[in-house]
Amino acid sequence: MNIFRLTGDLTHLMSIIVLLLKIHTIKSCAGISLKTQELYALVFATRYLDIFTTYISLYNTVMKLIFLGTSFSIVWYMRRHKTVRLSYDKNNDTFRHYFLVLPCFLLALVLNNRFTVREVLWTFSLYLEAVAIIPQLVLLQRSKNVDNLTGNYVFFLGAYRGFYLINWIYRYFTENHYRRWITWMAGIVQTALYVDFFYYYFKSWKNNEKLKLPA
């Protein structure tokens, strides 16, 4: 494992910690898209089907369990917790799941490495992860001011994508037969979605202003 991959995993973990911090300490999920969180839960559930059958490393198994556990508990908090759910911005979080889920599933049926249930679902999870942030970005755009924790949450998620991209470039040059066109394709789309957000994030940071995305 290289340093870029590790940094990517840690920023991914940081994004989840920031989100849980918001939910646990402020008891608020304002500005967080439940649609995106549900899509992430679906992403992890379909990607980590091999968690108990294929052993890679203790690190790998533990991280998978953390991502699965946290993503489903975040969804639970936003839907069921007696105070957290009241802060959910339901009226602005209107993006439809199936607009993303259906095309990703159809694409995974056609573009995959092998036509098996596990391989198709794994490919589906990559395609879905690439676009799962869209409802969150839409919600950010509709929010007048984005609070710090929400802004940092999306920032860490974007940083995770950036580091994974560098990791693939690194692996491409250091490992033989490292051909991963599905990962590359989905990863580039996913990282590109953050470019706009990063521009406004750094601009607000530089000018010491509250983050606000233009509608």
């Binding site: 091999d50 890679i56 790998n60 991280m63 998978k64 490495n113 391989e119 794994w122 990791n167 490292y178």
Partner: peptide, 10 residues
Amino acid sequence: ADTEETKDEL
């Protein structure tokens, strides 16, 4: 399994 991608990432 030549075309199968390595699944060591998260």
